[in-house]
Design a protein around this nucleic acid. Structure first.
Length: 916
RNA sequence: GGGCGCGUAGCUCAGUGGUAGAGCACUACGCUCACAUCGUAGGGGUCGCUGGUUCGAUCCCAGCCGCGCCCACCA
């Protein structure tokens, strides 16, 4: 069935994807495959939906994986999803909430059943959306961070690290989320700038009635937990107070005034209240001075029984008001400053985080980080762009203990069991824990399992090896680990990338991947972060509906310049949809002209200049695209493919070959038989027409089909659907059995293709000639239908030869009646200069002589100005002695060109004047 | 407070120590047998500012102005 007039993505995307899957096109480990090339997907949240960040991230991965697969590597793109602890639990809790049920009413086990149900219900969505995008992952290997094998991996890692002393339990302040009621890690805290107040509060001194010491705070309610005041030891204002006591207002507690470097004389009043139970700094001060730690908040951040009765049970912000009101009444508020300061918020819950004293599990990140830092320093892992290594280093070198326990239900439950006296047994399963307990206690003892689960990122840190079967030593693990490239956004370098490196090195003894490609964030047209609340989200699914997956993929690739955010404009997507249509129509042209892939076609053996030229241009494009993808310069690769397809193949090659392929064409008797053998123009002396023309046509049909097939391959990583569809068409029409395969195999090898310099020069001359003639015609408003008879003067023998060979093309593309050599340019013509040749176009009846004179004068002036500039340079001794020879030579060449042009144009001007 | 990035055509962005580029938008014209989701031609930029290095700077360096991001326990 012939191709339709336009490309309709929705008709072919689904069927092609199904075919790829049915034929196992994406499966790793196929026979005869070369060296492995592996990418592990950043696992999307299992209950999530595809957003633009996913679209970008997965498009780039797919470009890489398809490229390497086509080049013959054993490409494995390992897919899967993440259980996303907090995020998923929140969704399910919200669903329950709508029915008026709390998870506690349901109980842990039933609640988890509900989460699994929700996972079963919505877990396929994101993966199907990735398929829609064209992602060529090996779905047969799909994993989930909570599946059985991965749970085994998580448990083993936890137990091993515990036994190595790298995981431990500790009581210290954590970031507590009073809404989600769980500890979170430093990374899950988002510091926001907010406007607030700085209250200066007078604390009465114990032994000096009527005298005060003033402290400044942004959180007056925490004073109820104060256990000291700190001043700087060198602060003259307060030296006398050190060692004395103050009386804590509202509470009446006697608190010491201590000297500590932490107190900054420049800040606030220079004296700072110390609340070890609710501030990370104060906690440290408290440690140094052995201060009492008073916890005044419960898990929901309401005041507890450790505060005076009047305040008990108050929510923290209500408590602030109450405290301030009381202080006001007592006249203890000295002044209030308006300030802007940073306040920690939970990135999931959006509420203010409380530093809260609890017992949690920690991983000794500093120890794990050491080899991870060294691996990047040694270049075993390379970040692209390289600057991200600095970000990585600065974080890793100051890394804090990683709080890995969460007071959630959805996640990997911590494999720790407690005896009645609090003794901890960390084992891979309950039986092992019971055994250990029996040994410890000397008898059977009931144990209670730790209720907490692990941070989601704990399991994703193992992803590059857990998905390959670890802790089993599987053949896949041997073959595909270490993986090759990790493609990710910079927002998860700390959360994920750094931790994978730490865990990979610790448990596998090898880096998890060689290259980390860090891409940008997708923003809206104006550069703002896309977010639901702003309503500026562009849905990739809608774009795919409207323009097709290929157009979206190509857009994202073309905009993925390193180190820059992507501002996505719909107009770009539309433009690349048009590109797909253009390609489609070029294929239609080939189809209509019966251009078939030929078994005997040898790109190195073509005889016609146009064909030699397109072979060389194809080689150039293939090389540029290959190099760009290898260097992760997706935009350059996409641009090169776009330009070659549209502006070289469609704009010129297709136009060049039309006169050859159209048998009835009046130009048929002008066809060159071959590069060296040019048939004389006109009837007389012409060699027998038919056979030579058929040879030329034959070669050209095969060459066009070949070039198109190369384009389809080069574009395939970016636009898999339309290229597969057209390839399908092309190969089905082909008599060669070897091409009966999906496009997923085979990548153009530029090094095996000849780049014929002579053919390139020749066709570039034709292009210049045609373009310049068109330009003049347009400028002179020559009616498009007017066939002009061009006359060339001063042509060299080579130009004359080119003219004869390409006459048919030139007259057709430049819309000439004829083009001939002449001794002299005819009067009343417009003249232009190509190298040594003057081209005269008889357009007298269309032109305004005065305007033409002005044009020529302007052109001459332009050239003369250039010559003047070059002469100045060449007259500069410093330039001549210091600039490289090539640069000087280039200047000389340019000068000669301009001189020639100026002379020819001056001659033209003279003739015009004479004629006028 | 520390670190990073960005300011190039109306818009969105590439790019290079040696004659400024693309897409979109815009203007004019469209005979034509792949394509109006198209063709041909065209207009449009002192490459943020100021200095420095250099024979030569949009590119390298410094400072400044403007914008954005990341990290950080400063009340």
């Amino acid at each position: 069935m012939p191709l339709s007039k336009t490309y309709t993505p929705e008709e072919i995307e689904g069927p092609h994807y199904r075919r790829w899957e049915d034929e196992g096109a994406f499966a790793a480990g196929r026979k005869n495959a070369g060296k492995p090339y592996t990418i592990v997907i950043p696992p999307p949240n299992v209950t999530g939906s595809l957003h633009m960040g996913h679209a970008l991230n997965n498009t780039l991965q797919d470009v890489l994986i398809r490229f390497e697969r086509m080049r013959g590597r054993d490409a494995l793109w390992q897919p899967g999803t993440d259980h996303a602890g907090i995020a998923t639990q929140m969704v399910v809790e919200r669903q329950l909430d709508e029915k008026g049920i709390s998870r506690h009413q349901l109980g842990r086990s039933k609640f988890l059943d509900r989460v699994w149900e929700w996972k079963a219900e919505s877990g396929g969505t994101i993966l199907n959306q990735l398929r829609r995008l064209g992602a060529s992952a090996d779905w047969s290997r799909e994993r989930f961070t909570m599946d059985e094998g991965l749970n085994k991996a998580v448990t083993k890692v936890f137990v091993d690290l515990y036994k190595q002393g790298l995981i431990y339990k500790d009581q210290r302040l954590v970031n507590w989320d009073p809404k989600l009621l769980t500890a979170i890690s430093d990374l899950e805290v988002e510091n926001r700038e907010v406007k607030g107040h700085l209250w200066h509060i007078a604390y009465p001194l114990e032994d000096a009635p009527g005298r005060h010491i003033v402290v400044a705070t942004t959180r007056p309610e925490t004073m109820l937990g104060d256990t000291a005041i700190a001043v700087h030891p060198d602060d003259e204002r307060y030296k006398a107070f050190i060692g004395k006591n103050a009386i804590l207002p509202l509470v009446g507690r006697r608190i010491p005034i201590v000297a500590d470097d932490y107190a900054d004389p420049e800040q606030g009043s220079g004296a700072v209240k110390i609340t070890p139970g609710h501030d990370f700094n104060d906690y440290e001060v408290g440690r140094r001075h052995k201060l009492e730690v008073i916890n005044i908040l419960d898990e929901k951040a309401h005041l507890n029984d450790n505060v005076p009765e009047a305040f008990r049970g108050l929510e923290r912000f209500d408590a602030r008001k109450a405290v301030l009101a009381q202080l006001e009444e007592l006249g203890l508020i000295e002044k209030i400053d308006d300030i802007t300061h940073t306040v920690p918020y939970g990135d999931r819950s959006g509420v203010v985080i409380e530093p809260w004293l609890t017992e949690q599990w920690y991983a000794d990140a500093a120890t794990l980080a050491k080899p991870a830092i060294a691996a990047v320093e040694r270049g075993e892992i390379v970040f692209v762009p390289k600057q991200w290594e600095n970000t990585y280093f600065s974080w890793m070198r100051n890394i804090q203990p990683w709080c890995i326990s969460r007071q959630l239900w959805w996640g990997h439950q911590i494999p720790a069991w407690y005896g009645p006296d609090g003794q901890v047994f960390v084992e891979t399963d309950e039986d092992a824990a019971l055994n250990a307990a029996r040994l410890h206690y000397g008898k059977e003892t009931a144990l209670e399992r730790d209720n907490d689960v692990l941070d989601t990122w704990f399991s994703s840190a193992l992803w590059p090896f857990s998905t390959l079967g670890w802790p089993e030593r599987t053949p896949e693990l041997d073959r595909y680990y270490p993986t090759d490239t990790l493609v990710t956004g910079f927002d998860i370098i700390f959360f994920w990338v750094a931790r994978m490196i730490m865990m990979g090195l610790h448990f596998m003894g090898e880096v998890p991947f060689r290259t980390v490609y860090v891409h940008a964030l997708v923003r809206d047209e104006k550069g703002a972060k896309m977010s639901k609340s702003k309503g500026n989200v562009i849905d990739p699914l809608e774009l795919m509906d409207e323009y097709g997956a290929d157009a979206l993929r190509f857009t994202l690739s073309a905009m993925a310049a390193q180190g820059r955010d992507i501002k996505l404009a719909k107009s770009r997507v539309e433009g690349y949809r048009n590109f797909a249509t253009k390609l489609w129509n070029a294929a239609r042209f080939c189809e209509m002209n019966v251009c078939l892939l030929r078994p005997d076609f040898e790109p190195g053996a073509v005889r016609l200049t146009v064909n030699k030229w397109i072979v060389g241009e194809t080689a150039r494009a293939a090389q540029a695209i290959t190099e760009a993808i290898q260097a992760y310069k997706f935009n350059e690769a996409a641009d090169a493919a776009y330009h070659f397809t549209w502006h070289t193949f469609c704009d010129w090659y297709v136009e060049f070959i039309k006169p050859i392929l159209t048998p009835a064409s009046a130009n048929a008797d002008l066809l060159p038989l071959d590069q060296g053998e040019v048939r004389p123009k006109g009837g007389e002396g012409a060699t027998a027409p038919a056979s030579g023309d058929e040879l030329a046509q034959d070669e050209t049909r095969a060459c066009a089909a070949w070039a198109l097939s190369q384009i389809l391959h080069l574009l395939h990583p970016f636009m898999p659907y339309v290229t597969e569809e057209l390839w399908d068409k092309l190969r089905n029409d082909s008599p060669i059995p070897e091409t009966q395969d999906l496009i997923v195999r085979g990548w153009p090898d530029a090094s095996s293709l000849p780049m014929d310099k002579k053919a390139a020069d020749e066709m570039n001359w034709v292009i210049r000639l045609v373009t310049d003639i068109r330009s003049v015609r347009a400028e002179m408003n020559v009616p498009v239908a007017a066939k002009l008879d061009a006359k060339l003067t001063g042509a060299s023998p080579e130009t004359e030869r080119r003219l004869i060979v390409h006459e048919g093309l030139i007259t057709r593309l430049a819309r000439l009646g004829s083009i001939d050599l002449a001794a002299e340019s005819p009067a009343g013509s417009v003249q232009l200069v190509i190298d040594e040749t003057t081209v005269a176009l008889p357009v007298a009846r269309f032109i305004d002589v005065a305007a033409e004179r002005a044009r020529l004068e302007k052109e001459i002036q332009k050239s003369q100005a250039e010559i003047k500039k070059i002469d100045a340079k060449l007259a500069n001794d410093a330039f001549v002695s210091k600039a490289p020879e090539a640069v000087i030579e280039e200047q000389r060449t340019r000068r000669a060109d301009h001189t020639q042009t100026a002379e020819k144009l001056a001659a033209a001007l003279e003739r015009l004047k004479k004629a006028g």
